[in-house]
Design a protein around this nucleic acid. Structure first.
Lengths: 224, 224, 224, 224
DNA sequence: CATGAATGAGACTTCATTCAT
DNA sequence: CATGAATGAAGTCTCATTCAT
């Protein structure tokens, strides 16, 4: 709205990050140009460098701001006093809501973050760790609360990883289904996570050792 | 000095793709340079362009070759005559085996493919569709074979999407766990997919309508 | 926090020049940044421009201040009533003392001043002229005082130039020899200047026309 | 002359260095732009980078080529069998001849080389060392050949330094005196170097300890 | 008097791509 | 068939300098 105003630094920085998110989301990290980001932010390139440092720094700053918002959005709906099932439901719901509301942010966090090398990749990995840690903790607490045979955190982590992966994957499916609401998506996924495909499809639970599947015929592929 | 054999075109093209996969995997699409690819392939840049077209064409060619191998590897172990559970087990096992054996190929298919824009992205999307279609078909056949209330393909697709996502996600977890074998990973995931988290954690199956979770308190976030 | 005193303009200018000398000495004219100078001077960049004009102006101001000090330091020890030998000794001693005491100033005057183009170079040339003029005058007076066959100033100037060059050159040798004092260096150079290499090495004085050395075989060099 | 020819790499590299010498000489290292160098060399900037690496690399390459020529030009006229006086004469003559013939090269070696920081400075220092080493060796051999009390190399080095400095300094004086020939300049300097100022001006040789000159009145200067 | 905010211009560098041999 | 030579276009980043408060 306002053109040519001299803004204090913090506000300008937010504008820059706002613009950067959009451009990074649209073109990806490498194809995004600082020129375009500056133009969209309504300022000149030197300001971008003065305030944010470098292209990688800018990307990291975006990642930090958006991942903070993301984590906050999830954390706000969790409550250790509730049953774990309820918490997972709420968490997923908050997740799909966030993705729907902040599409560009999610795009950057999810699609663009991968496939980076160097310091950017480290930042991404750290954020991912944080999220996974929380989920692991959540599940771990649940197991103990239910007096079940303790599963240690190392065992729970692949479960959490798969859970996150399935949710992430659905965010792309959603793109092609505009009528899908966060509620509906959450229910779909809860069905899978809580009952498993076995129950969904009507078969018996998985017994962990079907006969004769250990070594399927190997597939010939031409090179390593 | 060493291998200046005049190779027939198809072999040369394979060499180029072999080199390209490695370089794309190492640096990502954009940071990968045609110079490095040509050098690694042991030929000059004009040959690269003569045979494969452009950088985007080259990347697409890589994607096509590797995704064909990938699909073939999975398809080879499936057998419509077997129970669906068995087929999913075999499919996942083949999947994790492929990922372990062809790390660079998987890296390109999974990490680098995402976050591309333009024609490359379309190629990626198409491949993904193909894989999902097969899984949907698999599940659809299973439902019918079991005489269950029919779930149409559109309903099954998000399930398939979540399934793929969880598997993909585990491929990154595997990177940090060298002792993990395809068998072990497959079992972990089968446990989740077939029994669900509910069974794993010992709670009851999910009832699809826990009271009062429909609208968690929204999280205030400063801007969209 | 510390020293936000409102200083009168002349003092502020001195602070700026102090800072500038250090930065110019450290990085050279071009790589020195006005930002760093302003920061070191403890004021903002607009002040720098308000008081001193431009970067070139600032550099010239540094050159003027330091060369004045330099000339004053030398002039203070000269005394036309003394024998020329004594005066040269004193002058050199004052020179090496100055160089040792004001390393940054000398660095700027000597190393950074060279290799500049444009107006800055002119300033440097002018200062150099001033110094040389004084030395020529000194030698000229000495010749006349001794009743020798008069050497006109134009003949003395290359001698003065060589003298200055030898002294300047030694200032760099000194950098690697921390134990060297101004006294010692002065004596070394006086030995060469007053006795010549011929006497130092024990040969006869130079006869101005050794046979057959006028045209040494030219060296072929590939191009100009 | 020839436009648009495809030249083999070594020739193009020489063209680039030729152009670079001129531009570096004209503007100095920092103000010289790669654009201008490329334009003058008649090629595009990427060639410059492909063949020579970077701006600093290009500068170093210039330094190396020109200093090799320089050293070769001097070395070609020296002959250990000759008396040292003769050799110094020939060396100086070759030096002034080189400076007259390759003004730009000398400009880069002498003026621009100083005041650089980083790796470029190291290169410069190394070249200077090489030249000084040779002169020291020359003088050292002379002393021994004459059966004089041996001066070790460390004592001779400042002498060599002063000698080089006086010659370098004269190269700038020459610029304003177009009638000056290498012969004439060499004789001027030989007069100083072999007889010393004392003999030139008619006084007695320097006695190394004039009374009372040790501590001239210090000059007050405002800051360190 | 003093400064935080802002920028036009230009530097170095890289890369996908093509021509001429 | 194959390649060394060559470049247009674009990218990131820095700096001296000036407004507007």
């Amino acid at each position: 709205m306002s053109e040519k105003k001299r803004l204090p630094r913090p506000e300008r920085e937010q504008q820059m990050l706002d613009a950067a998110i959009v451009i990074f989301s649209r073109w990806g990290y490498h194809k995004a140009s600082m020129d375009e980001i500056a133009e969209r932010a309504g300022i000149s390139k030197p300001m971008l460098y003065l305030y944010l440092g470098s292209k990688a720094d800018l990307f990291r700053a975006c990642m930090r701001r958006e991942s903070s918002r993301f984590v906050a959005a999830i954390a706000a709906v969790l409550d250790p006093a509730l049953p774990v099932e309820e918490q997972v439901y709420r968490g997923l719901h908050a997740f799909f809501t966030f993705v729907a509301d902040y599409r560009d942010a999610w795009n950057v966090l999810h699609r663009q973050a991968r496939g980076q090398s160097g310091p950017v990749a480290d930042e991404v990995a750290a954020i991912r760790e944080t999220v996974l840690d929380e989920i692991v903790e959540l599940l771990h607490g649940a197991v103990r609360a239910q007096g079940l045979p303790p599963l240690d955190r190392a065992e729970l982590r692949p479960l959490a990883t798969a859970l996150v992966g399935s949710a992430e994957s659905l965010t792309e499916w959603i793109l092609d289904h505009p009528d899908e609401t966060p509620e509906k998506t959450t229910r779909r996924l809860m069905g899978l996570l809580w009952n498993g495909l076995g129950a969904t499809l009507g078969g018996p639970g998985w017994t962990r050792d079907p006969a004769g599947v250990a070594s399927p015929t190997p597939v010939p592929v031409s090179r390593a």
